[in-house]
């Protein structure tokens, strides 16, 4: 009897904590649907007015497009580097392998603030846009290497050898065998790198200029002034982008496992 009460108590407690996790997200969405000029919940007179407002406002749109563009560029760099590095680290017997892996993990371990201050200290005079992309790629690279090295390990090298002995060139083996087999991992690495960049705050904090402001910095600045429903609308758009990205991972993972690929994607820690 007490057994059952205990189990129910844990279930109730857990549901309460999960509600605690969900409520703020619901409130942001709710506030964004209001029509009043101040942030309030529950929304008065629901409408999409604030979405129309931010869509027409270059102040918000520039930052949204910038952050999406930066995330795409940083993800391409991070995945390309991660693929190249993982191919060597997984497939060869070089010395200092463990040290190299630790080096690649460091951007994930040390606070992003430290990385950002270091980059700012060295490259404060370099073009801001370029530095934001370059820095975001560093922030994303650890996750990309974790996924890529697991992916490449799961690619059956005998298939590559078979193609090679049948006369395929190295380049052909790469494009026809290795890359297709690694595709699910490549896609997952790209999406998670994209999210790592889209989430990144500190590099934008130091490298933003009046014309180049990443979306998290734009929201942060807006919040230090006043709490407007426009911020809620932008926030809801951000949540939607994250949700779509995560959904894509699930969809690609499903279709990959249907095709028999064994690349499992795990979610490493990158909060902050």
């Amino acid at each position: 009897m007490s057994n059952r009460i205990g189990r129910i108590a844990i279930a109730v407690y857990s549901v309460l904590v999960i509600v605690f996790l969900a409520i703020p997200m619901i409130i942001i969405t709710g506030v964004s649907l209001g029509s009043t000029s101040y942030a309030t919940f529950p929304p008065v007179d629901p409408s999409l007015q604030w979405y129309a407002d931010i869509a027409a406002d270059p102040y918000w749109m520039d930052s949204l497009l910038l952050s999406l563009g930066v995330a795409a560029a940083a993800a391409v760099i991070a995945v390309a580097l991660a693929f190249a590095l993982s191919m060597v680290l997984v497939r060869s017997k070089i010395r200092f392998k463990r040290a190299l892996y630790t080096l690649v993990l460091l951007p994930l371990i040390i606070p992003k603030l430290v990385t950002a201050v270091a980059l700012y200290d060295t490259y404060y005079a370099v073009d801001q846009m370029m530095m934001i992309v370059a820095g975001h790629a560093i922030v994303a690279i650890s996750t990309a290497v974790i996924i890529m090295s697991a992916t490449i390990r799961s690619v059956d090298q005998n298939l590559e050898r078979a193609a090679w002995t049948m006369g395929a060139s190295r380049f052909r083996v790469l494009t026809k065998i290795t890359l297709p087999l690694a595709a699910p991992g490549l896609i997952a690495a790209f999406i998670l790198s994209f999210l790592a960049s889209f989430d990144e705050f500190f590099i934008g904090l130091f490298f933003s200029s009046p014309d180049v402001v990443t979306l998290p910095i734009r929201i942060f600045t807006a919040l230090t002034h006043q709490v407007s429903p426009a911020v809620a609308a932008v926030s809801t758009v951000m949540i939607l982008i994250v949700a779509i990205a995560l959904l894509l991972i699930v969809i690609f993972n499903k279709s990959a496992s249907r095709k028999g690929a064994s690349t499992k994607v795990q979610l490493p820690g990158n909060a902050g």
Binding site: I219, L223, I239
Partner: peptide
């Protein structure tokens, strides 16, 4: 979903 949502948004 909250885990991947920007800290600025969650703090807001």
């Amino acid at each position: 979903l909250p885990y991947f949502t920007n800290t600025v948004v969650r703090t807001f």
